[in-house]
Design a protein around this nucleic acid. Sequence first.
DNA 1: ATTTAGCACTCATTAAGGTAGAGTGCTAAC
DNA 2: GTTAGCACTCTACCTTAATGAGTGCTAAAT
Lengths: 344, 344
Amino acid sequence: MLTDRQLLILQVIIDEFIESAHPVGSRAISKKDQISYSAATIRNVMADLEELGFIEKTHSSSGRVPSEKGYRYYVDHVIAPTVENSNLNIMKNLIQDEFIEFEKLVQKSAEVLSELTSYTSIILGPEVFETRLKQLQIVTLSTHTAVAILVTDSGHVEHRSFSIPAEISPSDLEKMVNILNERLKGVSLARLAEVLSSEVLSLMKMYVQDFERSYSYLKSAFFSEHPVKLYIGGKTNLLMQPEFNDINKVRSFYRMMENEDEVLNLLKSPEHGIKVTIGNENELDAIKDFSLITASYQLGDNQMGKIALLGPTRMEYRKVITLLTALSNEMTDALYLWYKNNGK
Amino acid sequence: MLTDRQLLILQVIIDEFIESAHPVGSRAISKKDQISYSAATIRNVMADLEELGFIEKTHSSSGRVPSEKGYRYYVDHVIAPTVENSNLNIMKNLIQDEFIEFEKLVQKSAEVLSELTSYTSIILGPEVFETRLKQLQIVTLSTHTAVAILVTDSGHVEHRSFSIPAEISPSDLEKMVNILNERLKGVSLARLAEVLSSEVLSLMKMYVQDFERSYSYLKSAFFSEHPVKLYIGGKTNLLMQPEFNDINKVRSFYRMMENEDEVLNLLKSPEHGIKVTIGNENELDAIKDFSLITASYQLGDNQMGKIALLGPTRMEYRKVITLLTALSNEMTDALYLWYKNNGK
DNA sequence: ATTTAGCACTCATTAAGGTAGAGTGCTAAC
DNA sequence: GTTAGCACTCTACCTTAATGAGTGCTAAAT
């Protein structure tokens, strides 16, 4: 589609602009080592590239800036082929640590990622669907307060405090917890509510007074939604980018980032692998002049979570894509190992 | 020290400037209902106030802006006397909820506070020193991984995953946990490490093989530092303030807020009650043109935690001080109630 | 048929000058 | 003691001019 020369010059323009954030002129290009043409020749090529929609002017006599189409072409045709071969062991040691929960791992990854790139990283914690219940417990604090604790085989711990209704006697509470533990151990979190009503309900009916009240109560204590874990690293990194010199951009960006649902939405795509959305390809208005790169990590075919980096469209795509590929592989490997060790 | 008239005009200037963020001129003052003097008279008074250091000009022919000394006087002499009488049940319902952990309560408070004021709220979670150990538990996940869980009588839950060294046998682990539970229940977290070494160590020596290795291991699993809980609400609120139109201020501010230690330092003062630090009264350079208002909540004489609001020096002091007073009282009451109910 | 030098032209950026208006300080009258 | 009046100051905003980076086009060179 593009001639070699056009491609070369497009590449130089994008690389230069990514580095400097300033429009790139023909003279500057012709001075590059890789380029052996005069400025006038470059200008002709640039005119072609502009006509094709890969680059733009900011005003009628300015240098050129990559268009979104230009970035898209760059990502798809220039970078993608080279990533496979590149050396991906940058983040190896991050994960070699002694066993820690996935959540800690994920959190640390977010920090490292944002530090390495100076963009903002967003990581969606591992979905807990595939993990299984290890233990349920209720610790009573006083006659009318208690804390419920749930442990999964992945080392994930959830807890919730609640007050004990007067109608439920301590002995009933204990009985119920025993029943629950007996029946629910090893059940995956996704099926918890289901098994609860199918198997456990009838048992409780037999042994526990006022079981209905108790049942609904317990259910709300243990099995209401399992919170989604969203980690954001380097929120302030983007502030340093020159495209953030406009205060109002800063304001709208941060307003967006404060809304957890909205951020979650960014990562919702069901695809595996790396996905790059550039500028207006993003659905969310607030990031229409950002680029978002997402990767997923998974266990077998069960998608577990997402890693993403958010930066200006003028982003170091090569570096970011390489990093994300590496990290998502690492995390997938770590998950696989853990799964094997827990022999299931 | 100030005449009635001087005080009145100082008050008008500050109130006006807090609202508008623009320098206040003599003409504007003379038009206020409360003011019956002409602009010329006001000018004379303003000259006096300036000489006394309570107000300043931004340039030789500008209106006046409160100086830090002016704010200080305003806070100490104008606001303080009126707060006692004001109606403080704004936040009552926040705390009337069913029993929840302090931490949740604290987090929610931070949100409400920042929403109500459109400044940034910082809350230091309840110090756990006075809470007592309720239960220790170890849940083994596989042959070589486990998670340690610690529950306090305040409903606070801490957990940590770790791998089990080969030298420690499962039965030893169980024995140790039994011993620990037996001996440490009811011990305050502050004394935990102390009791551990004085009472428990010798016991373990008798029952557990390779106790030294096990001991140091357990110690690190359970009793390393208890993380400080710091909640920040409405980080982006300050962005809306006009004093943040300068991007570099934004940058340095956020750089500061990212550093947890630094934020913690802001709240370290040991005093009870409300404390207002204005502009350069703050030690930290990054907030030299902010004001910080801190309050503490406590249980008896044991200070538990801090609530603070960070805003521009042009802050709605009256509103903020009122709110903080109310909230700190509420939280102190809630703590007291809880303490009584747990009858200790 | 490409490539390049040359040149006129465009536009952003910066500096310099110029005006309007808000606000002050001071003086003199009330 | 208070106020009207007035000259003065400084900012904010606008206009104008100069500079320079960069372009498109044409015509010559390869």
